[in-house]
Design a protein around this nucleic acid. Structure first.
Length: 462
RNA sequence: GUGGGUAUAGCUCAGUUGGUUAGAGCACUAGAUUGUGGUUCUAGGGGUCGUCGGUUCGAGCCCGAUUAUCCACCCCA
């Protein structure tokens, strides 16, 4: 067999021990917060039926789903005309009936529908698993990445939305981030704005354009709106709305005036006010309410399915796409035949958070753990002497290893150093005879002799 | 899907107007030190200069194609 140059599939990464320790630090931190708010973990398969996923993410999204080629003679049953026409898209359902999951929300909706009879509502779940997208990789964008989703189904209460704000704030603060923005919007406000312009059918065009405000500027947005069918008169009404300034309360007051004639718009405003009210009652934290939370009516993510509040989190400390997002969808499970079940949830982008923490140097020293003590290996005799000690150390919950061969001591010390093992026990002829073992502290270089009992005591307290 | 950059040792990169046998730092191996790492000194291994073709007496360098990769747009975590 020919030797292949080793390489990774595009947009995927290996994780070294050090990287895994840092990743687990992120997962553990987020997980602790989820659990504290009453959410319980589930997992779903990496592979879903393609049918489950298609049509849920829009045309663009469908293209980004990784399809899995059927096994066996997958061309045998394909209609001949599709092959002759080389029609790729219609061919897909004939040659691929499975796909890798694209997000965690749709599999969760499927899970809820399949288990509707055993779930007690409201059902609060979190899920931390990889998802796959056939996107073109770039900074902060991978083809395989982890999402940390937390959702509740079967509860209309806006307390849930308020708690997601707290979850974001608490988890990100625990990770050491201190300058980030939790952007909030409500789909109903966007509906209201389109209504007062008299162009409710253009809501998607409107939001896609104004969403780009901070990227292409006001002039760019105006050009795009004109291209998408808005008139100069519409723009005069829109401009003050999209450039809304002031505190969150001021923005909402202003919107109330503008959207006075739209019941949907007013309801959206009311919902945001309720969420802010809950956050205030829960925390009384003025900084959270005025600095971290920003009402931003240009926020328009995932418009296809969100129906109420919309969330997005960005860090202001490094240049990076959003590190989290989410929202409410009134008919989460409708696509699988279970009507009238509302859901709301948010997601943390673990890989982007990793990149941010790395860039800011925010990983704590203790995120890296390794062996506590290495027993050196001089010769067969010393090895035999060391074996019972090795197990005693482990029984005392001390991470210990014996160097597996009688290599040169220099090599064994270098191994301990490379692995950042803080202690090395040296057992030679002299130590065996006296029963006093040499313990070397690799940080200070200090070396002392002591018996097993003293050794165990010292190591278990370190 | 659209646009731009890059490709030289395991890694990060130098390499002069095209001219002898392609270099450095880090990493690795060995020795200085037969029971001691992280510092120091010495020596050593390691290259199809991404690939294919063209120009030239001569190509790492110039030209074309191709592949890989990075960045940006669209969209997203």
């Amino acid at each position: 067999m020919a030797v292949i140059k080793p390489s990774l599939a595009k947009g995927t990464r290996d994780f070294s021990p050090v990287e895994m320790e840092k990743r687990n630090y992120i997962f553990d931190t987020i997980k602790r917060v989820f659990t504290k708010y009453g959410y319980r973990e589930i997992q779903t398969p990496s592979v879903e039926n393609l049918q489950t996923l298609t049509g849920k993410y829009g045309d663009e999204g469908d293209k980004l789903i990784f399809k899995i080629l059927n096994s066996g003679d997958y061309l045998a049953k394909v209609p001949m005309n599709l092959l002759e026409e080389r029609a790729s898209s219609p061919l897909i359902p004939h040659i691929a009936e499975k796909a890798l999951r694209y997000d965690l929300t749709v599999p969760f909706a499927r899970y809820v529908v399949m288990r509707q009879h055993e779930l007690t509502l409201p059902f609060k779940r979190f899920q931390i698993q990889p998802v796959w997208r056939a996107d073109r990789p770039q900074r902060g964008r991978y083809r395989e990445f982890y999402q940390c989703d937390v959702d509740v189904v079967g509860s209309e209460s806006l307390l849930n939305e308020a708690e997601f704000v707290l979850i974001y704030h608490e988890a990100l603060a625990n990770l050491g981030l201190n300058d980030f923005t939790i952007k909030l919007n409500n789909r109903k406000i966007l509906t209201g704005i389109a209504e007062i312009l008299g162009k409710p059918e253009l809501i998607v065009d409107m939001t896609v354009a104004i969403d780009k405000l901070d990227k292409i500027g006001l002039d760019g947005v105006i050009t795009e709106l004109l291209d998408r069918g808005f008139s100069a008169a519409d723009l005069e009404k829109l401009q003050p709305i999209i450039q809304l300034q002031g505190s969150n309360v001021e923005k909402l007051e202003r919107l109330k005036q503008v959207l006075a004639s739209s019941s949907a718009g007013l309801q959206g405003i009311d919902e945001l006010e309720t969420v802010l009210g809950y956050v205030e009652k829960l925390t009384g934290d003025a900084e959270l309410l005025n600095r971290f939370i920003v009402i931003d009516i240009t926020l328009a993510r995932g418009l296809n399915y969100y129906t109420g509040c919309i969330f997005e989190v960005k860090t202001n400390e490094v240049s990076m796409g959003s590190i989290g997002g989410g929202g409410r969808y009134d008919d989460l499970t409708g696509m699988f035949g279970l009507k009238g079940l509302t859901g709301v949830g948010v997601s943390f982008g673990a890989d982007r958070i990793y990149d941010v923490l790395e860039e800011l140097g925010l990983f704590p020293e203790s995120a890296a753990q390794s062996t506590n003590v290495l027993i050196s290996n001089f010769d067969k005799l010393a090895e035999l002497y060391a074996l019972p000690l090795l197990q005693k150390l482990r029984k005392a919950d001390i991470a210990a290893e014996l160097y597996p061969t009688a290599a040169k001591l220099k090599k064994q010390m270098a191994y301990a150093d490379a692995k950042k093992i803080p202690y090395v026990i040296l057992i030679g002829e002299e130590e065996i005879q006296s029963g006093l073992l040499s313990l070397k502290n690799m940080q200070t270089g200090e070396q002392r002799k002591m018996d097993e009992t003293a050794l165990l005591m010292l190591l278990s307290s370190s």
